[in-house]
């Protein structure tokens, strides 16, 4: 018997990267702070110099939170000459926030996302939808980026980044493309009835066997997820300006459907491949801002 080794493409795998925004040289006298956001799927780190973003990294969370935190901040520092000792204050956030070994303090991702969104889009932001790897948060904030109320979905991971990864793999569509592919339908199909990732996958397999195209199945799943996110947003109450953070902000299929259901457009996403900030780093960015505030208070 001969085993045929298939080259297995990992459709779910999204790109990990590092970015240095400014070529300016940092000095020892600068206030250097960082935020490290260890999420359930992605770990992000942002380095700030005197309150301005200097560099960041977006990496995949491993099985161990401290290692994921080290990897994220290590990538954000790479090629900058910075070392951990240069940081005045580091704030850890995200699901693994208590396991960020280099952090001076842990702050919840809810406070951090509000602060980060306020920095990315400005003081007009009032409602934030953060779709993370395993949960969804709807956050309301004031003009300073302070949280005024929030809601979180329960422990189910449906409709989150992890759910999308499962579908990318099932349908063999690269994760970066699934939003766009889900829009390639003439007419919106009925949403899948199960919001649980495991059940939705079973349901999707049934639909594929029934002869549905990949696009249609993906549209049905994406629509169900968008409906779920909108329900959370409606419960917290939506006030403009509205923004989306987290990995799903890049899923055009989800975003388009949310905008359609709510009748509200989100503020446009910054050109993060160019000079703009990636909405995926909003939590780590907020943490870095809070780190600066806490450093100044501790003086």
């Amino acid at each position: 018997m001969k085993v045929v080794q298939e080259g297995k493409k990992e459709y779910w795998r999204w790109q990990e990267y590092q970015k240095i925004l400014s070529s300016k040289n940092w000095e020892k006298s600068d206030i250097i702070t960082a935020g490290v956001d260890v999420g359930s799927v992605g770990s992000k780190a942002v380095v700030m110099i005197n309150g301005e973003v200097y560099s960041w990294s977006v990496t995949r969370t491993g099985s161990n939170s401290p290692d994921s935190a080290k990897k994220a901040i290590g990538w954000a520092m790479e090629g900058t000459g910075l070392e951990l000792d240069d940081f005045k204050y580091i704030v850890g956030t995200g699901y693994g926030r208590v396991n960020v070994p280099m952090a001076n303090k842990a702050v919840t991702e809810i406070a951090c996302h509000a602060k980060g969104a306020n920095h990315i889009w400005g003081p007009t932001v009032r409602t934030i939808l953060d779709v993370g790897g395993q949960d969804i948060k709807a956050i309301r904030c004031d003009q300073t980026g302070r949280v005024t109320s929030f809601l979180m979905n329960d422990k189910c991971a449906a409709g989150t980044g992890r759910g999308m990864e499962v579908f990318a793999d099932l349908l063999q569509i690269p994760i970066e493309d699934i939003g766009e592919v889900s829009l390639r339908v003439d007419e919106e199909p009925e949403p899948v009835s199960c919001t649980c990732v495991a059940f939705a996958k079973t349901e999707a397999m049934g639909l594929l066997r029934k002869g549905w195209s990949k696009e249609k199945v993906l549209a049905a799943y994406t629509r169900a997820m968008a409906i779920r996110m909108c329900a959370l947003l409606k419960r917290v109450g939506i006030e403009k300006d509205f923004v989306i953070t987290g990995g799903q902000s890049k899923n055009i299929g989800v975003v388009t459907r949310i905008e359609k259901i709510l009748g509200i457009k989100r503020l446009p996403m910054p050109n993060w491949r160019g000079g703009g900030l990636d909405p995926m780093i909003a939590g780590a960015l907020g943490a870095a801002i809070i780190a600066k505030a806490l450093h100044e208070r501790s003086k």
Binding site: V107, T108, I110, A111, R146, T148, F150, M152, K155
Partner: peptide, 12 residues
């Protein structure tokens, strides 16, 4: 999960 919610409320 509850810890995140409780802490976010207390931060608020």
């Amino acid at each position: 999960q509850l810890k995140t919610r409780v802490e976010a409320f207390l931060e608020m």
